[in-house]
Design a protein around this nucleic acid. Structure first.
Length: 602
RNA sequence: GGCCCCGUAGCUCAGUGGAUAGAGCAACAGCCUUCUAAGCUGUGGGUCGCACGUUCGAGUCGUGCCGGGGUCACCA
């Protein structure tokens, strides 16, 4: 049980003893004590004043005295300032915590499935969800790292998690790349051009738009209106024809489609592997896009949906401030939301989910609200367990990224750049000159990817972020590298004392008096379980990023102040070694929840 | 225009209704013959967009306004 919960239950018991009535956790709160005051935890007394009708000073002193008397092993002292009862934890529970958990690599995590208090047990997290007409960019990376990390955090909270992606592999935009390739590529393939497949296909998507613009301009010059020109442009007509051919299963078109998509998948897979993320299952839109139609039929029967004269089907959500929304075209073909309805339901039915999470940008908030509302109106009991984990767009200092205009930060480019920057920094410092080529490559990737993932995850997901391509991502300060560096430092100490495996630190802890930085560190380490559950509750990896950074900072202060290997006594050395091992374990564990590895040396 | 999100130091961001609002970057001043200086210590820098309101107490909650963004397609 976390310290705050322990203190809370102690306080409840002592309060009941003092004032002969029942108290609950809602009657008062426990905070960490502000650094400028003496103590570790603070009971905020104001709320109790109303219940007990005594001044905060009297109340605080009565409670403090009784807590000290009832739990002399747990508390060592207290003070009351204004409405705050500050409690200092005794050294004993702190050293006991250290003894018990310093080697525990799963400290703070919940093992097994958690069943209490209605928490979801079986959770699907959908992320990445790319289109197959262009390569991944920086915005996708935010999505991917966020989704992957949230999945790991939910696992650490005791949930069973299924990671999925839906690949948008059909539709007019795919046909654009295909047409442009037919027209301009002269049969170029990834092999013949030595280009990554997703980039090759993306090039022809851009090429399509160039050509399209050109044709529209020409038509307008010979007298067409803009609107008419956009309809008449030959390349657009060919593309629309191709989409129809695809839907009718035209062999040649399907063959081309399969070939180009396979290039893209190979390219995506390469990128996923490089950044170390994975999926348990992948859905393809070409398999799911017809799914929703049955439910539209059902909705019509139930009178949840209605048909207009032209045959198009709609849902009226004006009561929810969401307007009317089209769910099926007049010609009976699906729109975006039709297939989403089908897949959303299929997910729950096939996987028996307790919760279905979609990691999608906040531009689709409206869409996801509508989706949820439609499913609710269709009478599906799980509608409330659909959760849109929305995140802000990544923008550039020069404005939005637009793949059609080529103003995107390409995922592969930025990854390579980060790894290269890590290499440059490492060479300048010259601390690992004895590493083999393989070890160096691993280290550069650990550092480069670590910096990038930390950068994208350290901010609250719902905030949009602005990336300046001129300034590369930092390796100092509030960064992945800083945290990794702290880990490497600790490994260095352990190597020095011959305990690299961290398993042969011996001796009981008999230290009677902890120094301020030592106790601060232990108390901070203890918070880790609370941090994991908060991150899970909020589905927010930045909670972990902030914690792990502050832990590293605290350890570095401790490191500068006190020697571990040459401590003033054997007892102190023992204590500090354990403290270091536990810090390293938690850094490693926390970074792993963000998909970041730790280096032994850097 | 309707609905949704954001507004905290020069910049990027933290801050479960609680004490004198905190980090990082940038600037300045110190610290490597002692466990990795990708580090540590210190200094300067704030009308928490504005105004009312709720409360013992508001950066945090409510209402209104101002500024920025998103969205409201028979696109995906």
């Amino acid at each position: 049980m976390p310290f705050t919960s322990i203190i809370q239950s102690f306080a409840i018991k002592s309060l009941s003893e003092l004032y002969q009535q029942e108290f609950s956790t809602k009657d008062f709160q426990i905070n960490g004590t502000k650094p400028e005051f003496e103590g570790d935890y603070t009971v905020v007394l104001f709320a109790l004043v109303k219940i007990i009708k005594k001044s905060p000073e009297i109340l605080g002193n009565e409670l403090g005295n009784l807590l000290l008397k009832n739990y002399p092993d747990f508390f060592s002292s207290f003070n009351v300032i204004k409405g705050f009862l500050n409690l200092e934890i005794a050294d004993k529970p702190l050293t006991a915590l250290l003894m018990e958990h310093y080697q525990d690599e799963n400290f703070g995590k919940t093992s097994g499935v958690r069943g209490q208090s209605g928490k979801a047990k079986r959770v699907m997290v959908e992320y990445s969800s790319p289109n197959t007409n262009k390569p991944l960019h920086l915005g996708h990376l935010r999505n991917i790292f966020l989704g992957w990390s949230v999945a790991e955090i939910l696992k650490a909270n005791g949930n069973e998690v299924i990671k999925t992606s839906i690949v948008n592999d059909r539709g007019i935009h795919i046909c654009k790349s295909m047409i442009a390739w037919q027209q301009f590529a002269n049969g170029a393939t990834p092999d013949s051009t030595n280009e990554k497949g997703d980039h090759l296909v993306g090039d022809y998507y851009v090429k399509f738009n160039d050509e399209y613009k050109k044709e529209v301009a020409e038509l307008m010059q010979s007298g067409s209106t803009k609107e008419q020109a956009e309809k008449d442009a030959p390349i657009m007509k060919k593309t629309q024809k191709m989409l129809l051919d695809w839907e009718q299963g035209n062999d040649k078109v399907i063959e081309l489609w399969k070939m180009m998509n396979s290039w893209v998948y190979k390219g995506f897979e390469e990128t996923y592997q490089k950044v170390g993320i994975d999926f348990d299952h992948t859905f393809y839109e070409s398999n799911t896009y017809l799914l929703g139609k049955d439910f539209v039929e059902k909705g019509l029967q139930k009178k949840v949906l209605f048909k207009k004269e032209d045959g198009s089907v709609w849902i009226d959500l004006t009561d929810k401030n969401l307007d009317e929304k089209l769910v099926l075209r007049g010609d009976g073909t699906s729109v975006y939301i039709t297939q989403d309805i089908g897949l959303a339901i299929q997910k729950f039915e096939e996987y028996h989910l307790d919760k279905s999470i979609y990691v999608i940008g906040d531009e689709q908030l409206y869409h996801m609200k509508v989706l949820k509302e439609i499913i609710r109106k269709l009478g599906m009991p799980f509608a409330d367990n659909i959760f849109h984990l929305s995140y802000g767009m990544v923008e550039l200092t020069t404005g939005k990224m637009k793949s059609r205009e080529g103003t995107v930060v390409d995922a592969d480019d930025i990854i390579n750049e980060m790894v290269a920057t890590a290499e440059k920094h490492t060479e300048e410092l010259g601390k690992v000159n004895d590493f083999s080529a393989d070890e160096l490559r691993d280290l550069y990737e650990t550092l480069g990817l670590g910096a990038m993932k930390f950068y994208l995850l350290r901010v609250d997901p719902k905030k949009r972020m602005i990336f300046n391509p001129e300034e590369s991502i930092d390796f100092h300060g509030f960064t992945g590298s800083f945290v990794q560096y702290t880990y490497a430092r600790i490994q260095s100490i352990l190597r020095k004392v011959g305990n690299e495996q961290s398993s042969v630190i011996s001796g009981e802890l008999s230290v009677t008096r902890l120094l301020p930085l030592e106790r601060q560190l232990i108390i901070f380490l203890e918070k880790y379980s609370t941090v994991i559950s908060e991150a899970g509750e909020e589905m927010n990896p930045s909670v972990i990023a902030n914690y792990v950074f502050n832990l590293a900072k605290l350890y570095n202060s401790f490191y500068a102040e006190h020697s571990v290997a040459n401590a003033e006594s054997e007892e102190k050395k023992n204590l500090r070694l354990r403290l270091s091992v536990m810090t390293a374990n938690i850094i490693k564990s926390g970074l792993q929840l963000m998909g970041i590895n730790v280096p032994k040396r850097m």
